[in-house]
Simulated assay, not measured.
Amino acid sequence: MKLIVVILACCLATFKTNAQSTQGKSSELNENTIVKDSTGKTLAYEYWHQRVLSGQYTINRTYTGRDTSDFILTWLTPVHRKRLDSLRAKFLAEHTPVNQAGTQQAIPPVINNSVPKRLPQQSDGFKNGEEMEPFKERDINGQKIDTKALKGKIVVLNFWFINCPACRVEIPELNEVAASYSSSPDIVFVGLCLDQRWDIKDFLKKTPFNFQHIANARYYGDKYKVNLYPTTVVLDKQGIVRFNSVGADNTGYWIKKTIEDIKAEKL
């Protein structure tokens, strides 16, 4: 298992994302490495290690000062995954042992970067089939949102923040889902954003995100144990969690499927 992390680290030494650097020694990526999520929370080794092994996440090194840096668990977009897969293949080609016949020994793939044909990774803070603890809040326009009062409606929740790359990637897909149900008053779309109200409003002027948005929602992220962003939850008409996921992995498809499954049920 450690070999896989070493291979990933060697590939990541040349792989960069916006405003972040992944330069560093592979030996630093071990059970003693302090890895944080996108909001600065420290993650357990088992938690971030399994996500790196999935091929859906990477560890980025962000320099916070002259002699200090943080390791951040980051979701990989499809474009980044393709590039990382290419780097990994190149690394394996250059480091695969050669047998006596002069040909490289076959090494099985350690990462599967194909589009998943199953449910996305679920959040640690939610469990399908359980009732979500309700909350009351006002959105950035002052409108009241009370999930307890919304029973009888299907509620889609998206935990996000402005500087989250994966959150931005899925916004067009989420807008498409919201547009599909724009004439359905019994389906409500709510975003819980970590940013301040005025920052969200400025962002929405350039990047429409057609949900109702609650500002400064870190309290709710902590309350529901949201460690990775974006996190998406679909509640049925009784307030029961019917779907939840982390990352932007075909989220729109699964939201629509869950909504249609709920609508088809005879209550």
Rank of each mutant, 00 (worst) to 15 (best):
N158P: 03
A166P: 11
S183Q: 11
W160R: 09
N158D: 15
L157P: 00
A149L: 08
N141K: 07
V155W: 05
G142M: 11
C167K: 14
L174P: 04
V156E: 10
F159S: 07
T147A: 03
N175D: 08
S182E: 15
I145M: 01
A166W: 05
P185D: 12
E176C: 01
V155H: 04
E173N: 13
I140A: 10
Q143H: 14
Y181P: 01
V177A: 01
A166L: 04
K144M: 11
G152E: 09
A179Q: 14
S180F: 05
N141C: 07
N175Y: 01
I171Y: 06
A179S: 09
A178N: 01
G152Q: 04
V155I: 13
I171F: 08
W160N: 08
L150Y: 05
G152W: 10
S184D: 15
E170W: 08
C164Y: 05
V177F: 03
N158T: 14
A149G: 01
P185N: 12
V156T: 04
E137F: 07
V155G: 08
N158V: 10
S180K: 12
V155E: 03
L157A: 04
N141H: 14
E170L: 02
R168C: 05
E173S: 13
L157D: 02
I145T: 00
P165V: 15
E137S: 09
N175P: 07
E170A: 02
I140P: 07
E173A: 15
S182Q: 11
L174I: 13
G142H: 10
R138M: 12
V177P: 00
V169L: 14
L157W: 07
K136G: 02
K144F: 06
C164E: 07
D139N: 08
Y181V: 07
R138N: 15
G152A: 08
V156N: 09
Y181D: 08
C167Q: 10
D139V: 02
Q143K: 15
E137R: 06
